[in-house]
């Protein structure tokens, strides 16, 4: 199952990311994962949070351009070669990855993937050595 990621448009301006985290913090919304994609003048902040709908509402009220994007979140063993194995399977099956971000912690590594074809990606991951996170 895919999960909803928040995508937020940000100008490259000092303190702008903090504005987002402050609003989420104030509203008791916790962040699981966080990634920033940047160009010369703007960036897209991508977040996995606890209460997606509420996060969208509070950020829109603060005039942020926010949208929801379907992504796949998996957990795989934190050992050499495990991600490579998964990515290999995806590539074999023509799944193109638009972007991804990951972080490792103890025995596991969490990976957020934005594939071009969510359903097919999920099917393939189902037969891989990883668990698919649902919220």
């Amino acid at each position: 199952m895919s999960i909803k990621q928040l995508s937020i448009f940000l100008e490259n301006k000092t303190g702008r990311i903090n504005e987002v985290t402050k609003i989420l913090g104030k509203n008791g919304i916790n962040m699981h994962a966080f990634s920033m994609a940047e160009t010369t003048d703007f960036g897209i902040l991508r977040l996995i949070v606890t209460e997606v709908e509420k996060a969208v509402e509070v950020l829109r009220n603060a005039n942020f351009a926010v949208m929801l994007t379907d992504v796949v979140c998996i957990s795989c063993p934190n050992v050499a070669g495990s991600l490579s194995e998964i990515l290999e399977r995806l590539a074999e099956n023509d799944i193109f990855i638009e972007y991804m971000y990951a972080f490792a912690e103890g025995d596991n590594a969490n990976v957020v993937i934005r594939p071009n074809n969510i359903q097919k990606c999920l099917e393939i991951l189902g037969s891989c050595n990883c668990s698919i996170k649902i919220d």
């Binding site: 990621q5 995508s7 448009f9 994609a37 160009t39 703007f42 897209i44 991508r46 829109r60 351009a65 926010v66 949208m67 994007t69 638009e98 934005r114």
Partner: peptide, 12 residues
Amino acid sequence: RKDFFSDDIGRM
């Protein structure tokens, strides 16, 4: 405009 914002950097 908010409704034209895209998560895809390439499109932006």
